[in-house]
Amino acid sequence: MSTTQSERLRGLLEPLVSSKDLDLEEVTVTPAGKRRVLSVVVDADGGVHLDTCAELSREISEKLDETDAMGSGEYVLEVTSPGADRPLTQHRHYVRAVGRLVKFQLTPEAGPGELVARILKVDEEGLDLEVPGVKGRKATARRIAFADIAKARVEIEFNRKNKNEEEA
């Protein structure tokens, strides 16, 4: 049974990432000229601080040097958190996006193809959403099952009120 370099690296790095109470979201190795770029994407419920990424980067670098997992060629190591508009692919991603506006691509069985709504609640079967009203209409509630979601991505909101402003 053959494993890819990314899978081997994931197995090597997962314990380091987990020891920091982080989730290892993605490990990729891509060519960049004569070098390669090893990108390690981590996340946590409260987000990931820059200092945590820097500390983890040093530890990963040491581990890679000890094991020679990247071979003898040159590489650049990037340790980062997912972007603000990251795709939602796992249950924990939806939980972390509660309160955020999300653009959903629905499966053909679920009805019309696209939906933009705010996640209010997540459980094991699906999501409770608030669909914003259009042209002065009130927002409406909607429930969708995970099985009805083909793709989902957080929408960036530049003028979103924070919870303190909404309560005032």
Rank of each mutant, 00 (worst) to 15 (best):
V17F: 00
K63D: 09
K34I: 04
S81W: 12
L12E: 08
Y75W: 12
Q90N: 14
Q105T: 09
E55W: 05
I60Y: 07
E125C: 11
T89L: 15
R118F: 07
S19L: 11
L56F: 08
L115S: 04
E74L: 13
R143Q: 12
A110F: 05
D51A: 02
T89F: 08
V41H: 05
V102W: 02
T80P: 04
T107L: 05
A54T: 04
I119H: 00
F146R: 02
V131C: 07
I144Q: 00
R118I: 03
A152I: 03
V98D: 07
L50V: 06
P82C: 13
A147R: 07
D51K: 06
A139I: 07
I119W: 01
V116N: 12
A139P: 06
L56V: 06
P82F: 08
T52E: 01
P132Y: 04
L77T: 08
V95K: 08
R118S: 08
V95Q: 09
V102D: 01
D148M: 01
G11I: 01
L9H: 03
V41E: 11
R36F: 08
G46P: 01
T140C: 09
A110V: 07
T28I: 13
E78L: 09
V122G: 02
R153G: 05
V116E: 15
A150E: 06
E109R: 14
A44W: 01
V37G: 05
A32S: 14
D45Q: 09
S39Q: 10
E109G: 05
V79N: 03
H49Q: 13
R8G: 08
M70P: 03
T52V: 00
V116R: 15
I60E: 09
A32E: 12
V122R: 04
L88E: 00
L56Q: 04
D68T: 09
E59G: 11
S39P: 00
D123Y: 03
A84I: 11
G83W: 09
R8M: 06
L120T: 04
G47R: 05
E130T: 11
V79I: 13
R137N: 11
L64P: 14
E74T: 08
V79A: 08
V122S: 02
G46K: 12
L12Y: 04
E55C: 05
A54Y: 08
V48S: 07
L50M: 07
K151H: 09
D128A: 15
L101M: 06
R100N: 04
S19T: 13
V134F: 12
L120F: 03
G111T: 12
G136D: 05
T28M: 15
T80W: 09
I119Y: 02
F104M: 00
E25P: 04
L88V: 01
L56K: 05
L106S: 00
S19H: 12
G47S: 10
K34Y: 07
D85F: 04
E62A: 13
C53G: 03
T107M: 06
K63I: 13
L9E: 01
D68C: 05
E125Q: 13
L64T: 15
H93T: 15
E130P: 05
T80K: 10
D45P: 01
V79C: 12
G73R: 12
H91V: 14
K103Y: 02
E124M: 12
P112E: 14
M70N: 07
Q105G: 01
I119S: 02
V131R: 09
I144P: 04
D68I: 00
G83T: 06
G99L: 05
E7L: 08
T52F: 02
